[in-house]
């Protein structure tokens, strides 16, 4: 270790500078703004104001949980099916999973507006085949759909990468010991995929909770999420202090949920 001491330090200089500029400094400003007023004096007013936003926080967390669960329900079987295919088909299917991510997030969300609108793609089709149009845009369901659609690849990828590496002889061993297909999945494949599931949950839940824009465009403003409130504080109200304190609380919430997740995955690793 000593041998590479100075060299390693030198090499790490750019990263330390980068981290200080773009990670530490912003964090410092978030905390600073949270506890000061517009005049720069220390105050707890921002924190007190937060109580007004408790319903928004709760809605964000609730939507985040629902979107994450739906992602998990879709991603797990998808990842399993992909991992069972031949290498060539696996590559193609993974490419298809990633494909939407090559397009701008904004464009994807706008396209969903076009699809879900009262006079949009789905409803014009329904009307054409003689079914009454369904109101979909500007509902909570539309917001969750937007989240699931946008973050699904982040759930599929980690689960798939764990499953693709599973030793198939484990499956044979499970069969050998008397497991039918259901038992193989329940007692062998699911427990061994837990590390992928945990990182998938983290990677979907965090952006879902903090997202804005999706809720504005697909929720029509009636399903404000905490990300939207924060954005408004900076873009419209110019109340940096309240925005910062909202961000701080959101950050703490996310860190807490990640800690809980890490606790699970640590436990997982101990067993795994």
């Amino acid at each position: 270790m000593r041998r590479s001491g100075t060299g390693a330090k030198l090499i790490s200089v750019p990263y330390v500078v980068w981290a200080a500029l773009f990670i530490i400094a912003p964090l410092f400003f978030v905390v600073y703004y949270s506890f000061t007023n517009a005049a720069g004096q220390f105050t707890l007013d921002n924190i007190h104001l937060l109580t007004k936003y408790i319903p928004t926080f709760l809605r964000s967390i609730w939507f985040g949980i629902v979107a994450t669960l739906i992602c998990l329900l879709i991603a797990f079987p998808t990842a399993y099916i992909i991992s069972q295919k031949s290498d060539k088909i696996q590559r193609t299917m993974i490419l298809l999973v990633m494909l939407p991510m090559w397009m701008s997030f904004l464009i994807r969300t706008y396209s969903w507006m076009a699809i879900l609108q009262d006079t949009g793609l789905i409803n014009s089709f329904l009307v054409k085949i003689g079914i009454d149009p369904v109101h979909m845009i500007n509902t909570g369901g539309a917001v969750i759909l937007g989240m699931v659609y946008n973050f699904l690849p982040y759930m599929i990828m980690p689960i798939y990468s764990v499953m693709a590496k599973l030793d198939f002889s484990m499956v044979e061993a499970a069969q050998d010991l008397g497991s039918n297909r259901i038992n193989v999945i329940r007692r062998c494949i699911i427990p061994m995929s837990i590390p992928g599931v945990i990182s998938g949950i983290t990677m979907v839940f965090v952006p879902s909770v903090s997202t804005f824009y999706i809720s504005q465009k697909l929720g029509g403003g009636s399903f404000d999420l905490i990300g939207d409130v924060i954005e408004r504080q900076f873009q419209q109200s110019y109340n940096y202090n309240l925005g910062a304190s909202l961000s701080l609380v959101l950050m703490i919430l996310i860190l807490l949920s990640m800690a809980v997740m890490n606790h699970f995955s640590d436990e997982g690793e101990m067993v795994i």
């Binding site: 030793d167 002889s169 484990m170 061993a173 427990p191 997982g268 067993v271 795994i272």
Partner: peptide
């Protein structure tokens, strides 16, 4: 290679 279950 034994194929023991690593999660158990």
């Amino acid at each position: 290679r034994y194929a023991l279950f690593p999660h158990l």
